[in-house]
Amino acid sequence: MTVPADLDHRFRDAAARSGLLDAAFDVVETPLGDLLVAVTNRGLLRISYDSDPDKTLERVSQVVGASVMRAPRAVDEARRELEEYFVRRRRGFDLAVDLRGLTPFAVRVLDELARVPYGLTSTYGELAALAGRPRAARAVGMVMNRNPVPIVLPCHRIVGASGDLVGYAGGLERKVELLRLEGALL
């Protein structure tokens, strides 16, 4: 038996609205390719470039619980803000972020990362110092590599001590495109 598409959409929307889901997700089309975006009642939980959505959704369920369902309307706010960002109508995000499952150090680093201004870059070492651990540049690099919400928490703005573009979980070509979009690269 096949469920009519309209009924399926209404069911998913109702589940998301009623709080029955631990997380809702959808795929958002962007100039950088499709992004899997997951949200909870606390905020944006995940943005993934991962070409294996099952792997991403498995990680999501390990963090928040097994009730994870595709519910496109639940991610509408994130979709809208991402669309505005990619057409240069948005320089910062107003989305609440759900950082469950991260260490206190990672949360401190991501809090500092959120303060790196649009169109500018910082280094791993500078970010480590701001997070209170000036000798932890490599640890900051690991946090950037595992950033659960790239773009919104702009790890693409972090460069090597020499200014070189190093490391980006979404691939260096995407990092370059994001920095060009923001005017940080010519």
Score class of each variant (00 low, 15 high):
residue 64 V to E: 05
residue 64 V to M: 07
residue 68 V to G: 03
residue 71 A to Q: 07
residue 71 A to D: 04
residue 75 V to C: 11
residue 77 E to C: 03
residue 78 A to F: 02
residue 78 A to P: 03
residue 79 R to P: 00
residue 80 R to E: 12
residue 81 E to K: 03
residue 82 L to W: 08
residue 83 E to A: 15
residue 85 Y to M: 01
residue 88 R to I: 12
residue 88 R to T: 13
residue 92 G to V: 07
residue 92 G to Q: 15
residue 93 F to V: 00
residue 93 F to N: 02
residue 93 F to L: 08
residue 94 D to G: 13
residue 96 A to C: 04
residue 99 L to H: 01
residue 101 G to F: 01
residue 102 L to D: 02
residue 102 L to M: 09
residue 103 T to D: 08
residue 105 F to I: 00
residue 106 A to P: 08
residue 107 V to N: 00
residue 109 V to C: 06
residue 110 L to Q: 09
residue 115 R to S: 11
residue 118 Y to N: 12
residue 118 Y to L: 09
residue 119 G to R: 10
residue 119 G to L: 04
residue 122 S to M: 08
residue 123 T to R: 01
residue 124 Y to F: 13
residue 125 G to F: 02
residue 125 G to P: 14
residue 127 L to Y: 14
residue 128 A to G: 07
residue 129 A to M: 06
residue 130 L to N: 10
residue 132 G to M: 01
residue 134 P to E: 07
residue 135 R to V: 02
residue 135 R to C: 00
residue 136 A to W: 10
residue 141 G to E: 01
residue 141 G to W: 01
residue 142 M to D: 13
residue 143 V to A: 12
residue 146 R to F: 08
residue 146 R to C: 11
residue 147 N to D: 15
residue 149 V to L: 05
residue 151 I to R: 03
residue 151 I to Y: 01
residue 151 I to F: 05
residue 152 V to I: 04
residue 153 L to N: 03
residue 155 C to S: 11
residue 155 C to Q: 14
residue 156 H to P: 07
residue 156 H to I: 07
residue 157 R to E: 11
residue 157 R to M: 14
residue 158 I to N: 05
residue 158 I to F: 11
residue 160 G to F: 00
residue 161 A to P: 13
residue 162 S to W: 09
residue 165 L to P: 09
residue 167 G to S: 05
residue 169 A to G: 13
residue 170 G to M: 14
residue 171 G to M: 07
residue 176 V to M: 13
residue 178 L to I: 05
residue 179 L to F: 02
residue 181 L to A: 12
